[in-house]
Design a protein around this nucleic acid. Structure first.
Length: 417
DNA sequence: TGGGGTTAT
DNA sequence: ATAACCC
């Protein structure tokens, strides 16, 4: 059995039964029993075990360790536990533990099962029912979460919080309950208490600034307001998709999967400023942004096939609005991309300036407060011809490279590597 | 605030 | 291409 990890965490589990309402799941009491005495839920959605890991003061920690390029490391590390890791910003990750938990449960003997303990806090100090399979699975999840935090501290020197629950929304909400360097598990019966603890719908992940404003206009401010608001009217006002999604959220329901992030889908650099109003200034800024972008993309190894320029025009209101123009990167430029970026920077700046003039009439006065360059549509090396005749006729790219036989030779001067 | 990212339409 | 969302 796992020992409870050392640290400032309290004893978890309590003797008070949860007073929470039903968590939207089918009642556990009606479920049949397994030979081992476990109650298994019947039908219904597959019960998942999700962990949300939230690093404490990520930048401060990283800087203190004076390890500047530690960016993707937590994700590397978490992926060793399970490949299904979704990044949220720099310092938060979701991991779907469902499969791992199942595997561990299968290894467990029945005498070990009765001695199962939680790692960290139990939200709402809820009573743990070891005959409830949902509780059991979440406890195992809490132990895995503790191991993840332990590994993160031992191998990277980083501390953080974790929340374990049956979906991403609840895992994220519960991870912040006990704050620095602690973890909390949410048992299903307390999910209503957790979401009702929010003071405003704006605090619900998935409801951002705009949606919160629109809800406010409808007189919706608390989670309860949103739960009890007419679905029909909400659908009329926000559209069926958003309405249904956020109303589910208000009940603590979130079926969105943990989507493996993998490598980034784009690279961008931006610069904001008080004022930029001449073409020369724009060009200089763009050159700066592009230069550092090219370095980053070079490290990554993949090649971008699309380039985008984003601007923000000065305006007193409407602070967030941005405009963008994008275009494909010419293939002759893509090919030179890995090797010494000097010869690509000029043609790429030219492209960006064309995009700029497409957006901004430079004969008229303009006032920008932000410029951003984005390289996206990243593809692995030399897949530009994928799906084309050329691709399948090129030995180094098609099946012949796997068999090791080159049945014919190509004039592949334009191909690299 | 600023400098990243993502997805849906 | 825009408009949301997340940190």
């Amino acid at each position: 059995m796992e020992q409870r990890r050392a640290g400032p965490e309290e004893e978890a589990g309590g003797d008070e039964a949860a007073e929470a309402g039903e968590a939207g799941c089918s009642p556990v009491a009606a479920a049949p029993e397994e030979p081992g005495g476990l109650v298994v839920p019947e039908g219904g959605p597959p019960a998942r075990v999700i962990v949300h890991v939230d690093l404490d003061c990520f930048y401060a920690q990283v800087e203190m360790i004076s390890n500047p390029e530690l960016k993707g490391k937590p994700l590397e590390l978490l992926e060793e536990f399970s490949p299904v890791v979704e990044r949220l910003g720099f310092d938060e990750n979701f991991v779907d533990l469902t499969e791992m938990v199942e595997k561990r449960l299968q290894q467990l003997q029945s005498d070990e099962l009765s001695a199962l303990t939680v790692s960290g806090h139990v939200y709402n100090n809820q009573y743990i029912n070891l005959h409830d399979i949902l509780h059991i699975r979440l406890l195992v999840g809490s132990q895995i979460a503790a191991e993840m935090r332990e590994a993160m501290y031992n191998q990277l020197g980083l501390t953080g919080c974790a929340g374990v629950a049956s979906n991403k929304l609840l895992a994220k909400l519960v991870s912040g309950v006990f704050k620095p360097n602690q973890q909390t598990v949410l048992l299903p019966e307390s999910s209503q208490v957790l979401i009702q603890s929010l003071n405003h719908v704006k605090e619900m992940p998935g409801i951002g600034y705009k949606t919160a404003k629109r809800l406010e206009a409808l007189g919706i401010s608390s989670v309860y307001d949103l739960q009890t608001f007419s679905s029909k009217i909400l659908e009329k006002e926000l559209g069926i998709s958003v309405a249904q999604r956020i109303q589910k959220l208000s009940f603590g329901e979130d079926n969105s999967p943990v989507t493996p992030s993998g490598p980034p889908q784009s690279f961008s650099e931006e610069d904001s400023f008080k004022k930029c109003s001449s073409e020369v200034e724009v060009k200089n800024k763009i050159e700066e942004l592009l230069a550092s972008l090219l370095n980053r993309v070079c490290q990554d190894g993949r090649k971008p096939h699309t380039i985008r320029l984003i601007i923000r025009r000065y305006s007193s209101e409407n602070h967030c609005s941005r405009e963008s123009r994008q275009c494909p990167i010419p293939s002759h430029i893509i090919q030179k991309l890995g090797t010494g970026n000097c010869d690509v920077i000029t043609p790429m700046v030219d492209i960006l300036m064309k995009l700029f003039r497409n957006m901004v009439n430079v004969k008229m006065p303009f006032h920008l407060t932000l410029l951003s360059v984005c390289l996206c549509n990243l593809k692995a090396l030399n897949t530009s011809k994928k799906g084309t005749i050329d691709y399948y006729l090129t030995p180094s790219l098609s099946t012949t490279s796997r068999s090791g036989k080159r049945s014919f030779k190509m004039k592949d001067s334009h191909m690299e590597d």
